[in-house]
Amino acid sequence: MSVINLLPPELKNKKKQIQLNMTAISLGGSWIVLLFILTAVLFFSRMTLHVSLQANQSEINWLQNAIDQKKDIVSQAYLINDRLQVIKAAQVQNKFSVFLDETIKATPSALQITDFTINPQSKPPVKIQGYAASRREVVKLMEKFDASPYFKEMTFESSNLSEDKVNFTINGQIEKIP
């Protein structure tokens, strides 16, 4: 059986428009409601997390107070580690006794040192003056120093003979600081 709409076309159109508007309103309203539900979900989630955050903050304050009460121990621990760090870095501090030990080993039997200066910041860093039985003894000293791991580039500066002894001056560089 067929249905015949006998309404005039204007009314028919108006009815269609009203239906369309109602559909748009209901869809839009549903969308707005959904948005508010989403907002509510966000809000309550945040509130729940906020409660946990407040509990954590209280725990942090309690722990911080516990640490503050032991401030002395904390300061001591940081001081010790701070100083140990420097001590570790300072392991390379120079030991000048090693230079003198090397000099003991390098000095020939017929040679006397009267002035021995070692200063890594001066030029030359090593300066040695003394007496020797001959210039050969002086060169022996230089050769021995050159072979040492702590001295290098020994140079003969001057020498003069006085009362059967050679008065000499030699210079040198430091190869490494012990």
Binding site: Q93, N94, S97, D101, I113, D115, I118, N119, S122
Partner: peptide, 24 residues
């Protein structure tokens, strides 16, 4: 002096020697 220097280099205070001059 050598004995002194070796002991001195090991004391409980951080120091560094920059130069040393030995004269007879």
């Amino acid at each position: 002096f050598m004995n002194f220097l070796k002991t001195w280099e090991g004391i409980r205070r951080f120091f560094v020697l920059q130069s040393i001059q030995v004269k007879t």
